[in-house]
Simulated assay, not measured.
Amino acid sequence: MNRWKIDLLLELFREAGAVALRFQENPEVGIKSDHTAVTRADREIEALFAARLDRPGNGSFLIGEESIEQRDEEYIKSALEGECFVLDPVDGTAPYAAGVPLWGISVGFMRNGVLEEGAICLPPRDEAFLSCRGTIFHARGVTGGNPVVEPFIPHKAVYTPAAPICVAQSAARNWEFRFPNQMFVWSACVAVYGALLRGGVYGSIQHCKLWDLAGGLPLLKLAGFEARYEDGRELGCDVVAGGNFLLDPGPGRWRQKGFVVIAPDRQGVETIWSQVNVRNPAKS
């Protein structure tokens, strides 16, 4: 059964974008147990996706940021071993709640523990990027319900000292950076991934949870980007067997085990890693 359908995803993105935009003036911000923000839009968008995609009886599961803590271990095991959508209903909740247009919706499709497809929607730009069977598509006019969908050719930035590099919050707080580039700390993977695909930024230093990258990593891999740890190991789309995520119950569950640099090619990754000093790694 083909569960990954562009038409369905674009309809969900349209509805989800409308929800997010409706509540942005009064986001009703709460604080979760991990001290991160959550809004009414986060919860309502997750419920919207769950109503269409969460069908355990039919072999379709959902790992969502706002509902995963309510799932039992049997459900999680089935999701990781079967067919599963991985959702971040509002990636970039902090900028969303602050009224800064660096947020979006991220959804990936995982089969047998491997991310096979991904999609990100950026309502402030009224666009989405979606993978499907080896092709990246770009959709414009998503909020209107009749988007223009076309194959997309990524535009990779060329390295110059002026090319911006995005940096994860924890790295920005603790590391020493020697590169001359402008440094962005955006708090939203989808904004970074969209900018990478458009060539607006050159690279990214990333340390996030599974749902943050599930929509974007398959797109970047399909576009030919490299994502590697400091020791050269690759961050691939094999979530379960790849050993890149903390999947057992406990603190930090679902998080990447370490930082990676994403860049257009291996040389770019190594260039960025060579210009940082990883300080206080225990705090990162």
Score class of each variant (00 low, 15 high):
2 N>Q: 14
2 N>E: 13
5 K>P: 11
5 K>A: 15
6 I>D: 06
7 D>M: 10
7 D>Y: 10
16 A>H: 08
21 L>W: 01
21 L>Q: 08
21 L>G: 10
24 Q>E: 11
25 E>H: 12
25 E>I: 06
34 D>Q: 01
35 H>C: 13
39 T>V: 00
39 T>I: 00
43 R>A: 14
44 E>H: 06
48 L>F: 06
48 L>V: 12
50 A>S: 15
53 L>S: 08
54 D>I: 01
55 R>Q: 15
56 P>C: 12
57 G>P: 09
57 G>T: 13
57 G>E: 14
64 G>F: 05
65 E>D: 07
68 I>R: 12
75 Y>A: 12
81 E>R: 14
82 G>M: 03
85 F>L: 03
87 L>I: 02
87 L>N: 02
90 V>R: 09
90 V>M: 08
95 P>I: 08
96 Y>H: 08
97 A>H: 04
98 A>K: 14
101 P>Q: 03
104 G>F: 10
108 G>E: 00
109 F>N: 03
120 I>R: 02
120 I>Y: 01
124 P>N: 01
124 P>G: 04
125 R>Q: 13
126 D>Y: 04
129 F>M: 08
130 L>R: 02
132 C>P: 02
135 T>W: 00
136 I>S: 05
136 I>A: 07
138 H>L: 04
139 A>T: 11
149 V>M: 00
164 P>V: 00
165 I>L: 14
166 C>W: 13
171 A>Q: 14
174 N>G: 13
177 F>S: 12
177 F>M: 12
182 Q>V: 13
183 M>W: 00
186 W>F: 12
188 A>D: 09
191 A>H: 14
194 G>A: 04
195 A>W: 10
199 G>R: 08
203 G>C: 10
206 Q>D: 15
207 H>A: 04
210 L>N: 02
212 D>G: 04
214 A>H: 07
215 G>Q: 04
217 L>K: 01
218 P>Y: 06
220 L>H: 04
223 A>P: 12
233 R>E: 13
236 G>V: 05
238 D>C: 10
242 G>V: 00
243 G>M: 11
243 G>N: 12
247 L>P: 01
247 L>R: 00
249 P>Y: 05
252 G>S: 07
253 R>Y: 01
256 Q>A: 09
257 K>Y: 02
258 G>S: 08
262 I>V: 02
265 D>M: 01
268 G>D: 08
273 W>P: 05
275 Q>Y: 03
279 R>N: 14
